[in-house]
Design a protein around this nucleic acid. Structure first.
Length: 132
DNA sequence: ATTCTCACA
DNA sequence: TGTGAGGA
């Protein structure tokens, strides 16, 4: 789950993107105006597109070829974005659960000190962090 | 050589 | 969406 920073890394100028996507510079810039993509900019104000931007543009292209207009593409993109957010929240929930379990394990160690393989922490110091 | 913004005989 | 102007 670390590839995303690579996928979002600003890499290629518009010339490369047009060759990769078969789109004209005009189209690419227009789609940006419509908020479909947000490429980064260099110091000289030149666009730098990421892998995700290119994928996005290819997705947009295929939708347009299927007869979907800008408004339609916007909504399709929003929905896929909402799906991603839903997945993030799901993983977030999982992490929180695992943290709860970790809490329970630590609590067990506090309540049952002296067992083999377990660290013995004094009750008075840490047990106050848990609800008995 | 490339890309950027703006505007439309 | 295409295209040309004028700058960076």
């Amino acid at each position: 789950m670390r590839d995303n920073i690579r996928r979002n890394m600003p890499l290629f100028p518009i010339g490369i993107v047009t060759k990769l996507t078969e789109l004209t510079p005009r189209q690419v810039r227009y789609y940006e105006q419509q908020g479909l993509i947000r490429p980064a900019r260099t110091d000289g104000n030149q666009r730098l597109f990421s892998f995700n931007d290119v994928d996005r543009l290819l997705h947009i292209k295929s939708l347009m070829e299927k007869g979907v207009n800008i408004a339609g593409v916007k909504e399709m993109l929003k929905q896929s974005q909402q799906v991603l957010e839903a997945k993030k929240e799901a993983e977030k929930a999982k992490k929180e659960l695992s943290e709860q379990e970790l809490r329970r394990l630590l609590k067990r160690q506090l309540i049952h000190p002296g067992r083999p393989g377990q660290t013995h922490l004094t009750h008075g110091e840490l047990s106050r962090f848990f609800r008995h």
